[in-house]
Amino acid sequence: MSTYTIKRILLLVLQAWLTVSALFVVFRLAPGDPAVLIAGPGATQAQIDLIRHQLRLDRPLAVQYIAFVRDTLRGDLGISLSFRRPVLSVIASRIPPTLALLATSLGLAVILGVPSGVVAAVRPLSLVSQATMGLTVLFLSVPNFLLGLLLMDLLAVRLRWLPAAGTGGPIFLVMPTIAIAARLLALVARTTRASVLEILGEDYIRTARAKGLSGSTILVRHALKPAMIPIVTMIGLQGGYLLGGSIVIETLFSYQGLGQAMINAVSMRDYFLVQGIALFYVAGFLLINLLVDLSYALFDPRIRYV
């Protein structure tokens, strides 16, 4: 493992510690007493005091903080009040559906976005390219939940091709995937077009052409590979959108993932579950950025982290 990789992973550990601390600060110092929130409306003062004692909220902040970090490291995120199970086990059951949704969305965006971006760069004046680029502007202006609603109206309610909502086989993934992927697809296509256009003007492309390589070899081997760097960077920047999108879209389609659990937890005032899921979303975002940083060396041989 290179020094860069080790340094980058150490940075991740630092970031993780800081975000755990930030969550502690946000959840403990926000106005409103968590014990009151958890006890719910109509609880007596004695019940609130009991909860406050059980949660160590009557102890000094420093003691609470150390206990919070220690528990988090052990994987003890508290008990979910609505599921009456440990938060971690609730989250564990919700992660696979969400990962599946994120993977299909990202996959769709890349598989359709990269080729259409390349076509738009190579044949900028063709009707197909112009139409694709026009469509990306529209995709960037439609919120994912609105697209989801329209898909649901068309494909589930009117045409009855797909189930309107729920979790299960791959068929339940179709509409949520399209709804999340649309914006990402537009961004991937635009970024691909811009960076391929730029690279096609480079000297080494002329060299490759001069030594007689075919157009497609040049495009794939010499142009597309370095063009992946801005694309991957863009995907990293959109990681937050991807994760946030899963929350909205899972809720819309009643898809039993992490995001839907988070919204339920908020409405059930399930304090620890909200906190735990927030922690996992932030961790996911940090991980996406780690992978993006580490992937740069894959795409451009000139980048070597020593």
Binding site: G32, G240, L243, I247, M262
Partner: peptide, 16 residues
Amino acid sequence: TFPSLVLAIVLVSLLG
């Protein structure tokens, strides 16, 4: 490091 919608949901869940 917080996805913006996650941060917004956390804030709204705490502030009402």
